[in-house]
């Protein structure tokens, strides 16, 4: 079932176009990397603040609110530029364990970011004890592992 879905994606005329068009993949990969930098920065500034580093003179919830839309829109850009790459190399992705680890951790990361991390980052400071530090470290760990698995798909698959 899953394999046939990936075979279907690989067989799409869009996937063939992506592979045949010389500049399509490089341009999309470059855009994906620029979006990654924007996403990483938005996440990091808040995560560092959660663990008591970085912009500590700025209230945490103010920082989190201001960078929220940058984080969301850069993630949207990551998805929009990542999907064509998955479509055009669907079977390579399907057989790569790193792709599946990346996808699983992205789901965990999104759930974590929009539930626990959001609640902690938007809460009144000083009311949650050590939890902000734990949440900050977990968030950095989750998103770092996503970029590690992503890089390894291309290198070791």
């Amino acid at each position: 079932m899953t394999q046939s879905f990936f075979e279907w994606m690989q067989g799409l005329s869009f996937s063939a176009w992506m592979l045949e068009e010389t500049w399509a993949s490089p341009i999309i990969q470059c855009m994906h990397l620029v979006a990654l930098v924007a996403f990483a920065g938005a996440v990091l500034v808040v995560d560092m603040r959660l663990i008591g580093r970085g912009l500590i003179k700025t209230p945490l919830n103010q920082l989190a609110r201001e960078l929220d839309r940058w984080m969301i829109w850069s993630f949207v850009a990551l998805f929009v530029t990542g999907a064509p790459q998955v479509l055009s190399t669907a079977l390579k992705q399907y057989y790569s364990p790193f792709f599946w680890w990346k996808m699983q951790i992205i789901v965990i990361g999104l759930l974590f970011t929009f539930t626990i991390r959001r609640r902690v980052a938007f809460a009144e400071e000083g009311t949650l004890g050590h939890w902000p530090k734990v949440v900050g470290v977990l968030s950095i760990g989750i998103w770092t592992s996503v970029s590690v698995w992503a890089r390894l798909i291309g290198l070791l698959s």
Partner: peptide, 16 residues
């Protein structure tokens, strides 16, 4: 891989 992750740390913060 370390090059890409450290790029995220450097370029991500410089971008903001």
């Amino acid at each position: 891989t370390v090059h890409v992750v450290s790029m995220c740390l450097f370029a991500g913060l410089i971008a903001y």
